[in-house]
Amino acid sequence: MAFGGLEKKTTAAPMADINMTPLIDVMLVLLVIFIITAPLFTHAIRLDLPKVAAAPARQTPQTISLAIDDAGKIYWNGNVITLDQMRARFADAGKAAQQPEIQLRAARATRYEVIAQIMGAAQQAGLERLGFVTDPPPPVPGH
């Protein structure tokens, strides 16, 4: 036997071979773990907002047009307002008998934090109709 027998031999030398199977198993498991987790180490998420071909949104008297520029300024139907003023207007609109639809336009470089604050303020005011407005794609020549 490779490990020795039950009888005592005076000539039996200690085993000098290293069993490599457990070491290889551990290395293969570590390799699989690193292969799976390596794509998760990237910190930057590239996010390109879509350009879609959709019918233009209809404007009604109950439509609120909110726009956000690159600097995070909020425009209510074309007029600059602060976040607190917007929350107050949302509260007034939420109390109305017929709730308005909010159409949100955001510049490509707008921080998501500002958009999340607007969505949260609308939800707190009880406004449920929120739509995102995108730019139409550029026309393709020859089509």
Rank of each mutant, 00 (worst) to 15 (best):
M1C: 06
F3C: 08
F3D: 15
F3P: 15
G5L: 10
K8L: 11
K9H: 10
K9Q: 09
T10M: 13
A12G: 02
A13M: 12
M15E: 14
A16R: 15
I18A: 12
N19I: 06
N19K: 08
N19A: 08
M20D: 07
T21P: 00
T21I: 12
L23H: 11
I24L: 13
I24Y: 06
V26W: 02
L28Q: 05
L28P: 00
V29I: 13
L30F: 01
L30K: 00
L31S: 10
T37N: 03
T37R: 06
T42R: 13
T42F: 06
R46T: 13
R46P: 01
R46D: 14
L47T: 11
L47N: 12
D48M: 09
D48A: 15
P50A: 15
V52D: 03
V52N: 03
V52L: 12
P56I: 00
A57C: 04
R58K: 15
R58H: 14
P61E: 14
T63G: 04
T63W: 03
S65E: 12
S65Y: 06
L66T: 10
L66R: 02
A67K: 06
D69K: 02
D70G: 08
A71M: 01
G72W: 05
K73S: 13
I74V: 06
I74L: 06
Y75T: 05
Y75G: 07
N77I: 00
G78Y: 09
G78W: 05
G78F: 02
V80A: 13
T82K: 12
T82S: 14
L83T: 12
D84V: 13
M86E: 05
R87H: 12
R87C: 07
R87Y: 15
R89W: 04
F90G: 09
F90D: 11
A91S: 14
D92R: 13
A93H: 07
G94I: 00
K95T: 03
K95G: 04
A96K: 10
A96S: 10
A97Y: 07
Q98R: 14
Q98I: 01
P100G: 04
E101Y: 10
I102Y: 03
Q103L: 04
L104T: 04
R105N: 02
T110V: 15
T110H: 12
R111G: 02
Y112V: 10
Y112C: 03
E113V: 11
E113H: 05
V114Y: 09
I115Y: 11
I115H: 07
A116P: 00
Q117Y: 01
Q117N: 00
Q117S: 02
M119C: 10
M119D: 07
G120P: 08
G120C: 07
G120A: 12
A122K: 07
Q123T: 10
A125N: 07
L127M: 08
R129I: 01
G131D: 09
F132Q: 06
F132N: 09
P136G: 02
P136V: 11
P137V: 01
P137S: 03
V140L: 13
V140E: 09
P141I: 03
G142I: 02
G142N: 05
G142Y: 04
H143T: 15
H143D: 14
H143E: 15
